[in-house]
Structures are given as C-alpha cells and as structure tokens.
Simulated scan of single mutants.
Amino acid sequence: MSGTSREASSAGGGAQQVEAHVRRLWRHRGVAAPAPRRGPQRRLDLDDVLDTAVQVADGAGLAGVSTRAVAAPLGLSAMGLYPYVGTKEQLLALMEDHASVLPAWDDPGTSLADDLAAWAEQLFALYRRHPWLTELSWTEAPGGPHQQDWLERLLAVLERWRTPPGSRAPVVTTLYAVVRAAAQTDAGHARAAAGDGAAAWREQAAATQRLVGDLDRRYPRAHALVQHAPHDWQDAPRASVRRVVDVLCEGLGTGGRPGRAPAGP
C-alpha cells in the first residue's frame, strides 16, 4: 500500500471512530448506536458497561479508571471492552455524560439570583456525588446530550429573566468555573475529614500562630476575612457558590434579589 493510500485509510478509520463515538453518546436521543462489524454479537448493554465504569470512578477516583478495571467486573478483557466504548479517552467521555443526568427540579421563580443558585446547587450536588467529574477538563467536554441538557437549562433561566444576550456567555463560563472549583474544594475537605489531613492542617496552623505571633498584624485583611467566613468551614465551598451568584446578578444590574420580572411564555 502506498503512503497516500495508508494516510487515506487512517483518516477514514479515524472518521469512523468519531462517528461511532457520537452514535454512542446520542444513542438514547434518536441516533442508532454502532453495530459490530465483525466477531460475536455484543452480550452487554452499553448502559451497564458505563454504570460499572462510573462505580469504579466513584470508588477509586479517576486515577483508578482503566480499561482493565472496568472490564474485569463485566467478565471481559481490556481488549474486549473496546467494541463497547472505543478508546480510553472515549470511555471517559461516555462516562462523563452518562453520570451527568439532569435531575428534575422547579425553579424558585422569585429572582434571577434564586433561579441561578438553584441551577448551581444542582450542579454542585452532581459533583459531590461524582467528585471525579471535576478532574475532567470542561473545555474538552464531550458535548453529549446530558451535558447539553445542563447548558440549555441554564440558558433558559438567563433568557427568561431577560439577561442581556452579550452577558450570557460570560455568566455561563463563570458559573461552571465557580461551581467546579467549589466542588473540588469540597472534595478536598471530604478527603481531609476522612483522613488525618484536617488534624495536620490544624497542627500546622497552631504552630504558625505560635511562632509568628504577630500574624494578624502582618496580614490584617486576611485575618479579618475569617470573621465573615461561614461558621462551618466544610460548608464554605457551597456557600461561596450562592454568594458568587448574587455578585454576578448585581453586576448584571438585576440587584441580585428580587430580580427583574421574568419574560412571558
């Protein structure tokens, strides 16, 4: 085979892999899942495979996810997993969307800030259930149907409260970034509480206060910040999300709460 023929064959194979991956992502939204081209028929449902993969990630974190770790509970080899999910990167993308089902909730409808906070709280809760989701790059999100559902719900809130169109993209980016960062901090708090991290931190803080006795005079603003922090330090990440929402709405000119009247149907 000539070099040109090999390049064309490789490009065609890559395009087929991408199409198969998109078909898997959108298999429950009217797109036919890819059928095996050769070999025995698949005996497992893709949802069952992804349920197992998500369980592995929930228990061992993203670092514990490998084709072998996912395949073993299913009675498959690592290579036997490929016809179901494609490459390791495609497996992670499928897992990300599979775990990101949009729950049902009613918007408060009392202000833009309240409706945005409700959306942010739900996303924060999703990250709390699956902390490994925050380790995946949002800029490289697979764009599957469940993730599209989250974005569409957020944009619907912004539209309903007549948020200026030019401000919507920055609000979306900011909210996703803040909720993700807060959830990462929350996961760190959970790990510290489960181990000896919190005790070690307190021990170091006490030693610092003892050895640098004028710490509060050297850094008065940081010292004063503690007075306005939530009493429950473990609740600080979640509480910060609500405060950022209020600040965003103030910047948009809605006054946080109550916001401007929502648009009609």
Rank of each mutant, 00 (worst) to 15 (best):
L92W: 01
W138P: 00
L44C: 11
A53Y: 01
G109L: 04
V56C: 08
A117Q: 09
A99W: 02
L123H: 02
A99V: 08
V56Q: 07
A78E: 13
L123K: 06
L62P: 01
Q148P: 00
W138R: 12
L50I: 09
A125C: 05
H98L: 06
R129V: 11
G64C: 09
G75V: 10
Y84Q: 07
H130R: 14
T87C: 06
E96F: 00
L62F: 10
A117P: 00
L123Y: 02
L50M: 12
V101L: 14
A117M: 00
V70Y: 08
L81G: 05
P103A: 13
L94P: 02
R129W: 03
G86D: 03
P142S: 09
A99L: 11
F124V: 03
Y82C: 05
D48W: 05
L44S: 10
A53I: 00
A69W: 01
L50S: 13
L112A: 05
M79C: 09
V56H: 03
L133V: 04
E135I: 01
E135K: 13
P108W: 07
L112Q: 03
S137H: 02
A60V: 03
P108I: 06
H98Y: 09
T139I: 14
D114E: 15
A60Q: 13
T134G: 04
S66N: 10
G144I: 04
D114A: 15
D48M: 07
V85N: 08
T139S: 15
P108A: 12
E121Q: 14
L112H: 04
E96T: 07
L94Q: 15
P83W: 03
A141L: 08
D45P: 00
Y82N: 04
H98D: 05
K88F: 15
A72W: 12
P108E: 06
H146K: 05
Q147A: 12
T52M: 07
L133S: 05
L76P: 05
H130C: 10
E140P: 00
L81C: 06
S111C: 13
Y127W: 10
W132A: 15
D115M: 02
A78D: 10
E121P: 00
A71E: 02
L46R: 09
S137K: 04
S137N: 09
L46N: 11
V85F: 09
D48N: 07
G75P: 02
G61N: 07
Q148D: 11
W138F: 10
D114C: 12
D106P: 01
G144Y: 09
T87G: 12
E140C: 05
T134S: 15
V65H: 08
A60P: 00
W105E: 11
